[in-house]
Design a binder for these strands. Sequence first.
DNA 1: CCTATGACAGACA
DNA 2: GTGTCTGCCATAG
Length: 128
Amino acid sequence: MDIRWETPFTRKAKDAIRAIPSGRVATYGQIAALAGRERAARGVAWILHSSSDTAGLPWHRVINGRGAISLGRGRGFEEQKKRLIAEGVEVGHGGRVDLKRFQWEQNDGAAGRSPAARKYLTSLLKGD
DNA sequence: CCTATGACAGACA
DNA sequence: GTGTCTGCCATAG
């Protein structure tokens, strides 16, 4: 399956995803809300899993409301984890991410990479 | 119009 | 914490 037409919803959702800063994550529900459909988290998931063309979309910054990677092992989990870590997002056991520290908050002027991500990234570059 | 399919979320045991 | 159930929504046939 693949997305054939852009609808207002898919367009807004993709825009919202593109707006997530590196080093931060957003939940499916969060993206849905930004797209104007607070309860359309499944719709957001649908867009991502049915898009053969995710190039240019920071899809790896979208995780579920429980703060975990929703992709299954061998179905993109490893790739998503790798990409997040490369941006400074700590991914623990089971693909867990601490939303308190890494979730994107459009308000409070918390734009850009989170302090936690900057710190983690620095430690990674330092070699641990 | 109706049914099926999710990379969901919340509630609850 | 885990497992299950239910509601939700966009989109495909």
